[in-house]
């Protein structure tokens, strides 16, 4: 049937159609502001970040230690409550060199987001963070890194209490 159809429906518009007011539009700017509860596990995670420590949690059944901590083991469907302090070092699992901001505009300085497997957690358990104090071209998967913390009096209980990770 598709081969028999010459004109598919749809009216494409150009930017000029908008700029020159050729078509009518309505604009809406909602105020979408939220206060998200961090919850039981993440509240503790944040409190420990404020103390300068990364805390994970272990499943007493499958012995997995995961980070960020959570209240239920998704594999065993068992409650998790065995808190474990992890190291603040780890291994780069994967990374990117990012040149754009969230709205697709160009960033002034590139950033290096990475998934970092945290030492002391089960293999493969990582967190999202940024790398710095390293030339982007020198970053490799498998590279050992360590957390660079904000000074204790500047920490607020946030993932950004770790400023970034740098090569060890």
């Amino acid at each position: 049937m598709s081969a028999n159809v010459e004109n598919f429906p749809g009216t494409p518009l150009s930017q000029a159609d908008f700029d020159e007011g050729k078509i009518l539009t309505t604009h809406w700017k909602p105020k979408l502001e939220y206060g998200w509860d961090a919850g039981v596990a993440i509240s503790r995670y944040l409190a420990e970040l404020k103390n300068g420590r990364i805390i994970g949690i272990k499943c007493s059944r499958c012995r997995s230690t995961v980070v960020p901590p959570r209240v239920v083991c998704e594999w065993c469907w068992e409650p998790m409550d065995d808190w474990v302090y992890l190291k603040d070092t780890g291994t780069v699992n994967t990374f990117s060199i990012c040149y754009i901001r969230w709205d697709a505009s160009r960033a002034k300085e590139p950033q290096i987001p990475a998934v970092i497997e945290i030492d002391g957690a089960s293999k493969g358990a990582g967190i999202l963070h940024l790398l710095d104090e390293v030339n982007a071209d020198d970053v490799t998967i498998g590279m050992k890194v360590q957390a660079v913390w904000k000074p204790a009096d500047e920490r607020t209980g946030a993932i950004t209490d770790i400023r970034y990770f740098k090569p060890t």
């Binding site: 960020p68 990117s96 990012c98 901001r101 969230w102 987001p113 967190i127 963070h129 946030a158 993932i159």
Partner: peptide, 11 residues
Amino acid sequence: TTERALKPNLI
């Protein structure tokens, strides 16, 4: 809480 504070983008 644990990721968006890093100002990520979808890409």
